[in-house]
């Protein structure tokens, strides 16, 4: 176990939060009704807030390693897609409102059980970030669960749309519980969350909600690679857009 593993781990968590926050913020101004536009923007803000704490921590660790000075923005804006360690789930395109809330639900359920454990991490910084984030995520999970139920058990059309979303997203849920090298290295030290432990909790919660939503899970093959920097095509476009100014005008303050 090395500091580099903690850095990779922290970046992985930060990338997850930033990429999903970014995706959600694409909805700002385009939501199905004002009240929900505001709700999803709140979730975007929470996630970007989490990403910032995590990047700032990673940046401190990197600077302490004796490398060149790094900031949260260097980490977010100047790494290419093969350096990004987020799970494939969060980078998937928004699709319709149904796909967006289902993606949020899968991820919030994961983050909920994940942060609950990370609160007890032996890394004091990660534990503090987890404690704060858990409050936010508890609400995200409630909000997204209700939406999945509402749309799954709403009209014929909404049910069909949710079935389709499930078909598009389910294959990206397996990766959430596939430990990457840096997670395995950190596990014995009590810093990282044991994904094997939270997996059954996630499955139970997701199963309950999908059942109430009258939805059934497809048996698709699971995709993975995000944690190793092997992404779907979506991330490249996302980063091209997000990083444009920093790339076009290098070294400027904004």
């Amino acid at each position: 176990m090395t500091v580099q593993h903690t850095i990779d781990y922290t970046l992985h968590l930060a990338d997850n939060a930033l990429v999903l926050g970014h995706r959600n913020s694409e909805w700002t101004g385009h939501g199905p009704i004002l009240e929900q536009d505001i709700a999803l923007s709140n979730i975007a803000l929470d996630l970007i807030g989490q990403a910032r704490y995590l990047y700032q921590y990673a940046a401190r660790l990197m600077t302490m390693q004796g490398g060149p000075e790094v900031t949260e923005d260097v980490l977010a804006y100047l790494r290419d897609s093969w350096d990004y360690r987020n799970c494939l789930l969060v980078e998937q395109a928004n699709g319709d409102w149904g796909k967006t809330v289902l993606r949020q639900f899968f991820f919030s359920a994961y983050q909920y059980f994940f942060y609950r454990e990370l609160q007890h991490s032996r890394d004091a910084e990660l534990s503090a970030i987890a404690e704060k984030a858990l409050k936010e995520v508890t609400y995200h999970l409630r909000w997204s669960s209700e939406w999945v139920i509402r749309l799954g058990d709403g009209t014929e059309e909404s049910h069909a749309r949710m079935e389709k979303a499930l078909d598009q997203l389910w294959m990206y849920t397996g990766e959430l519980f596939q430990p990457a090298g840096f997670e395995q290295a950190l596990a014995p030290g009590g810093i990282a969350v044991d994904l094997g432990e939270i997996k059954p909790l996630w499955e139970l919660r997701v199963g309950e909600v999908l059942k109430e939503a009258t939805l059934t899970t497809p048996g698709s093959m699971m995709q993975q690679g995000g944690k190793q920097g092997k992404h779907t095509e979506h991330l490249g476009y996302l980063l091209a857009e997000m990083q444009f100014l920093q790339r076009a005008y290098p070294g400027n303050e904004w």
């Binding site: 913020s25 700002t28 505001i38 970007i48 910032r52 949260e72 977010a76 804006y77 997000m242 100014l245």
Partner: peptide, 26 residues
């Protein structure tokens, strides 16, 4: 303004711009 949320040049700018556009919805 929402136009520039996805292209905001720093995380701080991104967060404050989202908050602002969200306020307008409010």
């Amino acid at each position: 303004e929402a136009n520039w949320i996805t292209r905001a040049p720093s995380l701080r700018r991104k967060a404050t711009l989202i908050a602002k556009v969200q306020d307008e919805a409010g």
